[in-house]
Amino acid sequence: MPLPLIRTRFDAESTAADVLVDVDLTGLRAIVTGASSGLGVETARALTAAGAAVTLAVRNTSAGTAVADVVGRSTGRRPDVRHLDLADRASVAAFVAHWEAPLHLLVNNAGVVSAGLERTAEGRELQFATNHLGHHALANGLRRSLARGAAERDGARIVALSSTAHMRANVDLDDLDFTRSEYDPQIAYARAKTANSLFAVAATRRWADDGIVANAVNPGGIATGLQRNFSAAQKASLEAAEAAGVFAYKTVEQGAATTTVAAVAPEFAHTGGHYLDDCQEAYTVPNDASLADHPHGVKAWALDPDAADRLWRASEELTHPSH
């Protein structure tokens, strides 16, 4: 018998602020990647307002500094700002090398969408490299800090932002960089979002004994800067999904709620490898299920422990300094 789904008192209309009512995060140290715009800003603001010491890990430090100033004025606490380019292995390594404190919460929020094939300086397909590989390397580099944080606060958490888009495609371990097949930016994004969920499965299996759990979240449809690089085909697909009722747009505050649930809700304090949607653990659907029929589920392929293990080992090889 499968375990019952984890339920909370929050839903699709809840905001991050709702989740944090009467929650005191004083003493909690958090990193939020991609916190210079969109969901990352609201996530960082809400955590800071609840008392957390937040670091904005951003590629554009000028934008990050502006966000930190705004958050500081609104909350009375100013987040720290540090440079991080997830598509650049050296940048990830430098961030990790300069992080010395125990860490209680890592929010892998940053993400990119490309309209055509782009590659990193190392030849990796950009969406997979940024959305998955960079976060994989970051979390691995911060593992000891997370373990120290877990010892301080009875657990540490990682939140990986996935997407409904994961339902479009499983990870192709034989062609991670689209060197063998024709490039489709929507499929590339979908594979990366499936990888985000599989990361949560594998990280929890490996690190739970250290008190570290990881969960994946689908924030829902939110109009943010992420859509600025959509192609005409991507925009048309999104409009068709909206018209079909696959999703309805949320506010940024509502979109950040599911992230916040995974980050602080007691229901997810010591359990990981889950996929959350609308502030609840999502139900699993068959891999051949239609997105139109199951807009709030999670494909079985995104929770497959064997696939998660294979992806982890492949990601280790791709992010190892010797490569």
Rank of each mutant, 00 (worst) to 15 (best):
L103D: 12
P266D: 14
S181T: 15
P266L: 03
L226S: 08
G225F: 00
I222F: 03
N229Q: 11
H294I: 02
A50C: 14
T260R: 02
D277P: 00
A30I: 12
V92W: 00
Q234A: 13
P4G: 02
V107H: 06
W99L: 03
D177F: 02
A257Q: 07
P79L: 05
H98Q: 15
L47R: 09
A35L: 06
R191A: 06
A66N: 14
S91V: 09
G273T: 11
G40A: 01
D172Y: 00
V213S: 04
I212L: 04
N170A: 15
W312Q: 06
A265W: 07
P305M: 06
A265H: 15
M1W: 09
A90I: 06
T194W: 00
A300H: 03
A97D: 14
G27N: 04
A137Q: 12
E317Y: 10
Q254N: 11
A256T: 05
A208I: 12
H166Y: 00
A53W: 11
R143G: 00
A244M: 06
S290Q: 12
L86V: 12
A165F: 02
N109F: 09
L106H: 01
A200K: 04
T319Q: 04
E13G: 11
L311S: 11
R310T: 10
D278G: 06
R310V: 07
A165Y: 05
N108L: 01
G272M: 02
S36N: 15
G123V: 08
A214K: 13
D85S: 10
S290D: 14
A188K: 03
G123T: 10
A30D: 14
R73S: 10
T260S: 00
P321I: 06
G155H: 01
D11N: 14
L20P: 01
V217W: 10
V19K: 02
S62F: 07
P2L: 06
R77Q: 13
R313W: 07
L303I: 08
E13M: 08
I158M: 06
A289C: 12
A151S: 15
E317T: 11
A208V: 12
D304R: 07
V96Y: 09
L56G: 05
S145N: 15
A165S: 14
T251Y: 03
T48D: 01
T259H: 09
V261K: 10
T26R: 11
F128Y: 15
Q234R: 09
F10S: 07
L133A: 07
T75W: 00
A307T: 10
E239Q: 14
I212E: 04
L3D: 14
A300Q: 11
R157L: 02
D18K: 05
T26A: 12
W312M: 07
A248L: 07
P219C: 06
S62W: 04
W207F: 14
V58P: 13
W207I: 10
W207S: 08
N196K: 05
A49V: 03
N196C: 12
A137V: 02
F178R: 11
W312P: 08
D85N: 13
G111N: 03
A214Y: 07
L173C: 07
V32N: 07
A30M: 10
L5D: 08
L276F: 04
K299E: 02
A214M: 11
V92G: 03
H132C: 08
A200G: 03
A57P: 02
N287C: 00
V21P: 00
